[in-house]
Design a protein around this nucleic acid. Structure first.
Ligand SMILES: [Mn+2]
Ligand SMILES: [Mn+2]
Ligand SMILES: [Mn+2]
Ligand SMILES: [Mn+2]
Lengths: 223, 223
DNA sequence: AACATGGTTTAGAGACGACTAAATCATAGG
DNA sequence: CCTATGATTTAGTCGTCTCTAAACCATGTT
């Protein structure tokens, strides 16, 4: 049996480590709101349990076993979120916190019931892919709205989900997964940029909001 | 903030202490699968937090504050159970364990959404009353099938929910909340008794099963 | 009235997961 | 190539919850 805490570390590592990237102590600690010392100690225990490979001072990588368990936790998390928004009508800015608890409570049978009644949803309400039971995920190449080339645009793939205030603002601006968006004014990395969503009037958004939006650039517009 | 462990103690005390009965260290410890020493230590902390009154060697009683919080945990637990059986089709012998986790994860908003989509259910799948938001419960006078007078009968009010095997057996025998049941043969307290459910053929049940069934005796047949 | 018994509390200790402060390492700039 | 800097690890504690073993108390029996 794996502790709830260790499950949270697993999911955090999964989300931090990109396809190439290693999950560093600091990045995981930051995501979990925990000191780097605590993360370091936990990395040792997880390595002993065969969940990660740990190269000191460099960070961890999930093993096959660790990766499979991580995807299952993330699957439970995102299915729970979908359920909360779709079936209970809870606002998307509040579901992450609840799902963060539920992800540890749902046995296989309940998880798959969720999937069934939700029609095998492919994404969480924030746009992130829901891993399959075997751990596969649909990968998409994205660029944050902050870094997108001026004049460029695409479809919103997902939005960062950890700040409820940001989420509420994004929803009000129409910046939800699936929306078409274009950058009209402002260089990549600028403090503010003017963007246009679908048929709406253009709005100026600041850094924090821009960084929270991941855009899938149209095939022919890739850098 | 109150710990998940303390919440479990609160609910256990609530369920152990009858209208008159005091919740004793041993009874609470047994219900939580914990040593008496652990329960004793926790009682001190809960008394310090104003959740219970503690009379050493005699047990605890919930304070007004403790009782209110306990009913809210039990409300979440039982609504979660109803949701799992009614909306997801999970078997009633498995829902208690899942609800035991979910009861700590559901904020007010989600709990009341459950209540709404369930049409303000009055009982959990095992027949226990669901406390209202203000903590009120419908009281019913019951006698266990083991103690019911020979020849007597009534309506099944609720069944003990902690043993999945017992629950599965009871369901197979038709001994579910609402069923009419009569004791045909066997003295109160006997190892086995013959009972009849609704229109079914009479069956002989052993102690363990008999004790698990609480029967509401018809008004005119009260002892 | 004394005592035996069983339940309860205390004593002592361990697992887990968090923290701060201090030491250590990797690496980018000079 | 060397060093300054920032990230990481270690050392030392703490809080929470658990346990077993031993001491203690309330109770009913003799
Ligand atoms: Mn979590
Ligand atoms: Mn999400
Ligand atoms: Mn619980
Ligand atoms: Mn129940």
């Amino acid at each position: 049996m794996i502790s709830q805490t260790m499950e949270d570390y697993l999911a955090a590592i999964y989300r931090v480590e990109g396809p190439t990237h290693r999950a560093t102590t600091g990045a995981v600690a930051r995501r979990l709101g925990v000191s780097a010392a605590s993360a370091s100690a936990m990395f040792h225990k997880m390595a002993d349990s065969g969940l990660v490979r740990y190269r000191e001072y460099l960070g961890v990588t999930l093993t096959a076993s660790g990766r499979l368990q991580a995807t299952q936790i993330v699957r439970r998390h995102r299915l729970a979120e979908r359920f909360l928004t779709d079936m209970l009508g809870i606002g998307w800015e509040r579901v992450d916190k609840v799902a963060d608890q539920m992800e540890h409570a749902l046995p296989e049978e309940v998880t798959e019931s969720f999937a069934r009644v939700l029609g095998d949803a492919a994404r969480c309400p924030h746009g992130y892919p829901i891993p399959s039971t075997s751990g596969e995920v649909a990968v998409r190449e994205t660029v944050s709205l902050a870094e997108l080339a001026t004049g460029g645009g695409g479809q919103v793939a997902w939005v960062s989900e950890d700040d409820p205030v940001v989420l509420a603002t994004l929803a009000r601006r129409g910046l939800v997964p699936g929306a078409e968006v274009h950058v009209l004014v402002g260089a990549p990395g600028a403090k503010r940029r003017v963007v246009q969503v679908e048929g709406r009037a253009a709005v100026s958004l600041q850094m924090g909001l821009l960084q929270a939006v991941a855009v899938e650039v149209a095939m022919d517009a890739r850098p």
